[in-house]
């Protein structure tokens, strides 16, 4: 109970005002964000702010159901960051160095089985600012054996601008407006190759809804 209160207060008093004042969101709804679990939201990854902004899109009433999947080796590296990651974000920690992928997948699937909404970045790491990196296959193998695949919602979200506001390796946040384009739920494909292709294609398609034309030149496909 106490744990969820930190998260609620963090988003109510800090993240939501910050998203409005320091960032400023232009939200385009091609589809809708899932408000019930089990479901997965996948997004392109450019900044530490990606997960925070995505979570701030959710109403406070269900914010406790929304959990970002994040690297334990990064977020648990010191006790302050660990406190923040577990209390305020309530991350689903995965160990990137663990070769036992089944263990990693099980942690995520347990969260899904508990009716939670997972946020995932299929590019893996943040990469260069505002560039689309290579889509990883892990998500496909994580989900493929689930019995509820037919009704499990996988919703893609494309964000543009956070890589300018707080890019990798920078500590100074510079205010920029951000386009958030919420796509339609994906149909789970047969093979991992199709899956990667579908995600890459969806991100490409969602870019065309960005307010700023400049995006087309700046984003390069892998």
């Amino acid at each position: 109970m106490k744990k969820s209160l930190y998260k609620l207060l963090f988003f109510a008093l800090w993240m939501k005002p910050l998203a409005f004042i320091l960032i400023g969101l232009n939200i385009v709804r091609v589809g809708t964000l899932p408000t019930e679990g089990p479901s997965v939201v996948i997004a392109n990854h450019n900044s530490h702010l990606d997960a925070l902004i995505l979570m701030s899109l959710y109403p406070l009433r269900i914010i406790n159901q929304v959990r970002p999947v994040a690297a334990a080796d990064y977020f648990f590296k010191n006790k302050y960051l660990k406190w923040f990651a577990t209390r305020c974000l309530d991350i689903v920690p995965i160990d990137r160095n663990n070769r036992q992928l089944n263990e990693t997948f099980e942690i995520c699937n347990t969260a899904l089985n508990n009716g939670q909404i997972l946020l995932l970045f299929p590019e893996g790491s943040r990469g260069n600012p505002e560039e689309l990196g290579k889509i990883k296959k892990g998500l496909f193998y994580m989900l493929k054996d689930r019995a509820d695949l037919a009704c499990l919602k996988i919703v893609p979200v494309f964000m543009y601008g956070l890589g300018k506001a707080l890019p990798r390796g920078e500590a100074l946040l510079v205010p920029f407006n951000v386009d958030v384009i919420i796509g339609k739920a994906l149909v789970f494909p047969e093979t991992s190759k199709d899956f990667v292709h579908a995600i890459g294609q969806t991100f490409q398609d969602l870019q065309s809804y960005c307010l700023h034309k400049g995006v087309f030149q700046e984003l390069k496909d892998e």
């Binding site: 601008g161 300018k164 890019p167 205010p175 920029f176 407006n177 951000v178 400049g214």
Partner: peptide, 11 residues
């Protein structure tokens, strides 16, 4: 903020 977000800028 709107202006800077709209015009082309570099890192």
């Amino acid at each position: 903020k709107e202006f800077f977000s709209t015009v082309p800028t570099q890192h």
